[in-house]
Nucleic acid binder design. Structure first.
Lengths: 284, 284
DNA sequence: CACTGTGATACTCGCGAGGTATCACAGCCG
DNA sequence: CGGCTGTGATACCTCGCGAGTATCACAGTG
């Protein structure tokens, strides 16, 4: 009686997300009454009130907040167990395989070097490169869609993972080639922060850069196009120069924090294949 | 169909631990046939063979190894969610509470300073100090019995957690006061490694120090007594001097790696109370 | 006051988790 | 070889609980 089924966690998280039993039930593909009862039973079982049912809506209690946060972690871990087990089983007989999550479009040079160096190792496994959204790699490691990732600090947080730093590079401003600022030898963050005709681009779905007038972008191609059109400016690690267009200019930023690239994996991982990839990476 | 209930994970882990359906069923408090069927169903659901049933015993497949490892992590996370939710709910109304896991007997000075400093903060929560076995703190953080811990590197591994280093200190050899080596100003690890009448003590249940003739000890009192009796020698951080007896002598070790004390917490924690404790600790 | 939107309750049904009894098979020993 | 033992799988039954439908109780709103 001191444990909880993943079904109950899924149900509670749906309700806590929606703060509405009807919508949560719909999202779960069940009817509303069984959901109400499941939550009641969960509360009884935990001996704790999770939701405050005021007429007109539902709100989380303190304990509910905790369960929402910790339950997400637990569900991710469960999903990761399932995914990794399936992968380990389905490729049975053939070579091992590792899924490497990489921010789409980034890390070109480093990634090539890494994959080449690793492929040259004796007994190298197959590496599947999985392009991910801007800050999605952390989630992918946590829920088992990926086994290992390349990340940028300070953009990504490495909390809860193991990692090895691979390289550090300064950042540059990427702006339209025809813009006056593109002539400068160097820039500071202030120079590009408040240019009226060049609002700083904001990554969608990412926690940072919430406010601001800049366009919301979803991938690098979109961003590249907006810069080429003279509509925005962005800050990138220097290695981004490899994908610049003719219409782009890259100008060093004096005061932007340097970006470090890390290879990152879940702390409890213990596979031979992963260990070898990490060893290869740290020797680059 | 792409998830798994914690019940199924529990069942599989029991079988994988015991490598025997009958004993696993007994441990789980159910009969053997339902367990066999549950595992079969789990295998069907994952589309993967987890166990090789040879006549005379069971063995894990590659996928089974993965599920054992990842499933343990998932179950720990689930248990942690339940424990922390219960704690958050049951103390409702009273002050917040945080559980701090501490190696029994260690950290006296630092711990006192930390608790005093924190208690002086406005709006300080209640800190419950939970003494733990030698290397049990990691497990306690993972399964929710504790919210935060004090750990020693290199003795503890911080993988998968967030941490802040608090202090670093050299190590000393603690040996019987009447032993000839106690007269020395300093010692090296070699000096104490092979003394025939003073075999190095080994912590029980801990991964390190597997082989060797030394006595197996379970807690610090036991160790203190054995040293006082002239039967063994041990290596400790210098702050251990606070609990020495008359019959003990502490001699600095020239070549033992220094020990760093860290305050450690699960990477996903986000509570105000925890954040304040950490801030207090890092200002010590 | 009728109406809407909300979560809880009352029932019914059917799947599936769990039990008991038994089988199928491999080693072991006389 | 034939019984014996220990193992996991199968057959079959039961019943608890998860899920559905219909309805209630209640608060805000026009």
């Amino acid at each position: 009686m001191d444990t909880v089924e993943t079904r109950e966690l899924r149900y509670f998280i749906a309700v806590a997300d929606e703060l509405h039993f009807g919508r949560a039930a719909e999202r779960l593909g069940i009817a509303q009454p069984p959901l109400s009862r499941a939550i009641q039973q969960l509360e009884r079982r935990l001996g704790v009130t999770l939701l405050e049912r005021n007429r007109r809506g539902v709100s989380l209690t303190g304990a509910g907040e905790i369960l929402l946060q910790e339950g997400r972690v637990a569900l991710d871990a469960t999903a990761a167990a399932v995914r990794r087990t399936r992968r380990a089983g389905n490729q049975d007989g053939s070579r091992d395989r590792l899924v490497l999550a990489v921010k789409a479009g980034a890390f070109h040079e480093l990634l090539n070097k890494l994959l080449d160096a690793y492929a040259a190792e004796p007994g190298a496994a197959e590496i599947e490169v999985l392009p991910s959204g801007t800050c999605e790699q952390e989630e992918m490691l946590r829920d088992g869609r990926a086994d290992v990732a390349l990340m940028h600090t300070p953009y990504n947080s490495l909390t809860g993972f193991d990692s090895v730093a691979l390289m550090t590079e300064p950042q540059v401003a990427i702006l339209p080639a025809r813009h006056p600022l593109a002539e400068r030898k160097t820039l500071s963050l202030n120079d590009i922060a408040d240019v009226p005709d060049l609002p700083l681009a904001r990554w969608a779905g990412n926690g940072t850069y919430q406010p601001g007038p800049g366009p919301e972008i979803h991938d690098q191609t979109q961003l590249a196009q907006l810069i080429a059109l003279g509509r925005t400016v962005a800050v990138f690690p220097e290695s981004a120069r490899t994908w610049l267009w003719e219409e782009h200019a890259a100008v060093p930023l004096r005061d932007a924090p340097p970006v470090t690239t890390h290879i990152v994996w879940p702390a409890h991982s213990r596979s031979r294949v992963l260990a070898e990839l990490i060893r290869t990476a740290s020797r680059l």
